[in-house]
Design a binder for these strands. Structure first.
Lengths: 203, 203
DNA sequence: AGATTCCTTGACCGATCGTTCCAAGATGGT
DNA sequence: ACCATCTTGGAACGATCGGTCAAGGAATCT
């Protein structure tokens, strides 16, 4: 049958994305991907071009979908780094608590497997992580910003804690525990910014 | 050939452990495990009993090997939580920087894959994570200790940051970046303990 | 020395992996 | 109405997966 596509590409990408998200690259077999998307192998290969290519497109869709939410949370409180980071973690925790989506984080999942991913995809994951870092870094500038070097470190720290929330949630940590971790990370930001010499002098 | 074992079980376990550590459960095939240990399938099955059982024994060996070092670092500075946590991270960072051993952390790697591990092993990983948490928790007691609830949260926080160091190192983060993350986590402990009402009153 | 027990090697099993290919049917252009 | 184009489902491919098994040599015991 058919002559025009019988399915929505983005919907299929969403479903495939969840399979990679839940199971990681290797354990996401084409059979499972086919079942989840409702597509046969012909459609899968004709549309996306193979497992590697499909995986990369799922990474991009994930980064786009949730990256947008992060961006929004961070920029809503522009000029107030602590509030921005709090909003960032609120989005992360909401995603983790969302039962309609797997635990953890596709980027974190992929980062943990980066050494075994084929070259292109491994580098791609690193790029996505760096994008996230840069986004957080931007939110740390503003009136009560830290010196550049410290802001870089804080941004890496926030990204790191974000990864840890993904790992711990996969290991069955409760929402309460994850919230406590995020709160402590926010306090780190607050304390670090407050302790900055420049501002100690300005206050 | 043979009649008595031709290899050292612990040595073989070490080598198998590194394969799981580097590649994760699924990507560690029996062929690769055989090559790494120098053992045939017969020896592998006769000695360890199958992939699942071997994996569990590798988890235990990892937990034993590095858990001992953590324990030592934490208890050397008993009564001084901040120094204890600093020593803890020093051990973690030394392991990550050690080129003779894969990046990341076998426990973190396994935790990220917990949902797809067969029931027994998934629960086992959670147990090991909890053991680590309890160890850190113990180090947070003492003369300048936080109230119980806060100490619980701090212990979870430290374990979380530890996981994040593993993930980021696998994604290619530099030693400098990882050190900065650990330092910020230590400052969080220091600030949190200092800000405790009980001690603010006692000082 | 002979019998027994154990370990190792390597072939082999069915299942599943990612990928390729093709026949069949539906669509759009002319 | 006809043809070129495209999509689809499923069969089939070689490779590799975890696991099993039998043959045969080495060590131990009587």
């Amino acid at each position: 049958m058919s002559g025009r596509k019988q399915f929505d590409v983005d919907t299929a990408l969403d479903q495939a994305m969840r399979v990679f998200w839940e199971r990681g690259y290797t354990d996401a077999s084409l059979d499972v991907l086919g079942s989840a998307t409702g597509l046969g192998r012909g459609s899968l290969y004709g549309t996306f071009g193979g497992k590697d290519a499909l995986f990369r497109q799922c990474l991009d869709r994930y980064a786009s979908t949730y990256g947008t939410r992060y961006e929004q949370a961070l920029t809503t409180h522009a000029g107030d780094p602590v509030r921005a980071i709090e909003a960032f973690f609120d989005v992360v925790l909401a995603r983790i608590a969302d039962p309609s989506v797997p635990a953890g984080c596709l980027i974190a999942q992929s980062a943990a497997q980066a050494p075994i991913l084929k070259g292109d995809n491994s580098a791609h994951v690193r790029t996505l992580l760096d994008t996230q870092r840069r986004r957080v870094r931007t939110a740390l500038t503003g009136p009560s910003a830290a010196p550049e070097e410290l802001a870089d470190e804080l941004a890496t720290f926030i990204v790191a804690v974000n990864q840890s929330l993904a790992v711990l949630s996969r290991a069955g940590a409760s929402d309460t525990e994850l919230r406590a971790v995020a709160r402590l990370a926010c306090q780190t930001v607050a304390n670090t910014l407050r302790a900055t010499p420049e501002h100690a002098a300005c206050d």
